[in-house]
């Protein structure tokens, strides 16, 4: 028996991240988070305590054999496995990611299934991969019957949310976001870069990256999770400020509406904390424009100023002789 031909070099990595508040009244401590994210008994949950606690599940695989989404109607079947994982930041923000690497070409016939299983997170096309069309198709979203990374991420999220550890008493209402990303492989030594980051309606974000060979697909997934986490924090805080009607309403009510932000969100801002070092430069572009951290700090300062203003009358009353 001859050894199976190894798959070609991946030219594209695609993924989708769902980010949302964990439906639980209190943040989970690391022990409970580890229990929640133990998706497999044969692999470890990764815990990083600093600078902000983050728990990362082992990866689980979903076997796929279906057409890839592709712009312009190019049909291209792919076979292999999609990797999925979940991360919980500070016991509060739950993220699930599904991602897959795609090589430039693949055999014209399906291999024995075992050969796909030894290459987790890789799906081989039949023949040549129409790289540009597939990248566009993934960002646009899968149609019925096509490889849908969103469904895989969604199923994992639903499975976790059903866990009996969670009480479904959320401390505040918030929306989830979906981030679809594609990373085009560039030769090793080239710089990793963020080529495009867009906000679409309905909580959808799309990201295009350049990813040097040699940087693991999992690192790109981690980078996108970090980006999605901070985008979600910004979006959620902005919605809270809108809802509180700070500009229109007066008095303690408006400020009280912001209390969940202080309790649950303000301490989570830690961009790049869990990003692979080869990819931290990607963040720098975002800090320059639109200036993620600048926007965050402005919002945080606004909340703190309002809280301080509300405290003045109380202080005044406490100090004045009755």
């Amino acid at each position: 028996m001859t050894a199976p031909e190894p798959p070609a070099r991946p030219v594209l990595v695609c993924g989708e991240v769902r980010t949302g508040l964990l439906p639980s009244l209190h943040a989970l401590d690391v022990r409970a988070a580890t229990q929640l994210l133990r998706l497999r008994s044969d692999d470890h949950v990764l815990v990083s305590e600093r600078p902000v606690p983050r728990v990362l599940s082992p990866e689980i695989l979903t076997g796929v054999d279906c057409p890839l989404p592709a712009a312009g109607g190019a049909r291209n079947r792919a076979v292999g496995t999609v990797a999925a994982r979940a991360a919980l930041t500070s016991g509060r923000v739950l993220q699930t990611t599904a991602y897959v690497s795609l090589p430039a070409t693949g055999p014209d016939a399906r291999r024995p299934w075992g050969q796909y299983l030894v290459r987790p997170g890789l799906a081989e096309p039949f023949g040549r991969l129409p790289v540009r069309a597939v990248a566009e198709g993934v960002l646009r979203g899968a149609r019925r019957g096509e490889l849908d990374l969103g469904i895989i991420a969604e199923n994992l999220s639903a499975r976790l949310v059903r866990h009996p550890l969670l009480d479904h008493r959320t401390p505040f209402k918030s929306r989830r976001t979906r981030m679809r990303w594609v990373a085009r492989r560039v030769p090793e030594g080239d710089k990793a870069a963020l080529e495009r980051f867009t906000l679409a309606e309905d909580g959808l974000r799309t990201v295009e990256l350049r990813l040097p060979d040699g940087v693991a697909a999992a690192a790109a997934a981690g980078m996108c999770e970090d980006l999605a986490l901070h985008d979600w924090l910004l979006t959620t805080l902005a919605h809270m400020l809108d809802d509180s009607r700070l500009a229109a309403a007066d008095g303690p009510a408006a400020v009280l509406a912001l209390r969940p932000a202080v309790d649950h969100l303000l301490h989570l801002w830690m961009p790049r904390a869990h990003v692979d070092r080869s990819l931290t430069a990607v963040w720098d572009a975002l800090e320059e424009a639109p200036g993620f951290t600048r926007q965050w700090q402005t919002q945080v300062q606004r909340i703190r100023d309002q809280l301080a203003l509300q405290a003045i009358p109380l202080l005044h009353r406490a100090l004045s002789p009755s």
């Binding site: 508040l21 439906p23 639903a158 949310v161 059903r162 959320t170 209402k173 918030s174 929306r175 989830r176």
Partner: peptide
């Protein structure tokens, strides 16, 4: 039924 529960739970976290 699972999907129905998932949806209602998710929306409860989002809407009043």
């Amino acid at each position: 039924l699972h999907r129905c529960v998932d949806l209602l739970l998710r929306l409860d976290g989002e809407y009043d």
